[in-house]
Simulated assay, not measured.
Amino acid sequence: MQIRTFALGPLQTNCYLLSRNGEAVVVDPGGDPAAVLGALENDGLTLTHILNTHFHFDHVGGNRKLAQETGAPILASSEDAYLMETELGLGGFMGLPRIEMFEYENIKPGAHRFLGLECTVFRTPGHSPGSLSFYFPDAAAVFVGDLVFYRSVGRTDFPGGDFDTLKHSVMESIFTLPDETAIYTGHGEATNVGDEKRNNPFFSDFHL
């Protein structure tokens, strides 16, 4: 599986283009998806799904356009649906762009297949109630949105956030993965499970 990163939108959110055997999946198109659409066209890829880790405005800004241009369905957790009735989901505050509404399908945690590969969808609340993480074991990669970052964690001071819940999500769903698993985050550089278990200061009480 090839993984390409595009920094999209006003907060330079990491949008991931996953591709294999002529098919592609996009994770969190947070802004104008023109660059992603260009990559799809240039490489002759068919977009099969758009995956959202959560419904904060900076992760969904390109949903509508990308879905309209490709016909790919948007999959996300309905537990975050309420956010699309707030500025946190819709944007529009502090000069930030407003989100164009989009339709989506609820995806349940558990076993799924994308690009012909196994994918486990973890329910990982804490940053938002409906936060999801997408784990591809054959690629040794997990896409976590704003759950955990390199040596840090996602904010929990937004409505619906909870620090203890976030820590539990990370320890139960992410830190139980093999140490070499790459963690692809919503902002900033990628990291891996082993490094975060050893060095993330928010988990200094975590026993290896």
Rank of each mutant, 00 (worst) to 15 (best):
N14K: 11
Y16F: 14
T5S: 08
E23S: 15
D32P: 00
N199G: 02
L11K: 09
L90Y: 07
I50N: 04
L208N: 06
R151F: 03
F6T: 00
T5R: 13
T124Y: 12
K167I: 15
H56R: 03
G30Y: 12
R20H: 13
A7T: 09
K65H: 13
A76W: 02
A34I: 08
K108Q: 08
G89I: 00
P129F: 04
F206R: 06
N63M: 02
V26L: 09
L132K: 00
V170C: 15
H168L: 12
M101F: 05
F143T: 08
E41T: 01
L40C: 11
D28L: 05
G61Y: 05
T165K: 12
D205K: 14
V27I: 15
M94I: 02
T156I: 05
L208S: 06
T46Q: 11
L37R: 07
S78N: 03
G194H: 14
S133C: 11
R198Y: 03
T53F: 01
V36E: 01
G61A: 05
T176Q: 14
G160F: 07
D195Q: 06
M94L: 05
N52S: 09
H59A: 00
G9D: 01
I174E: 03
N52A: 05
L132P: 01
T191Q: 13
T120F: 14
D179T: 00
Y184L: 11
L90D: 04
L11M: 10
N14L: 12
S131A: 10
V170Y: 15
P33A: 07
G145E: 02
H56K: 07
P178L: 09
N42I: 01
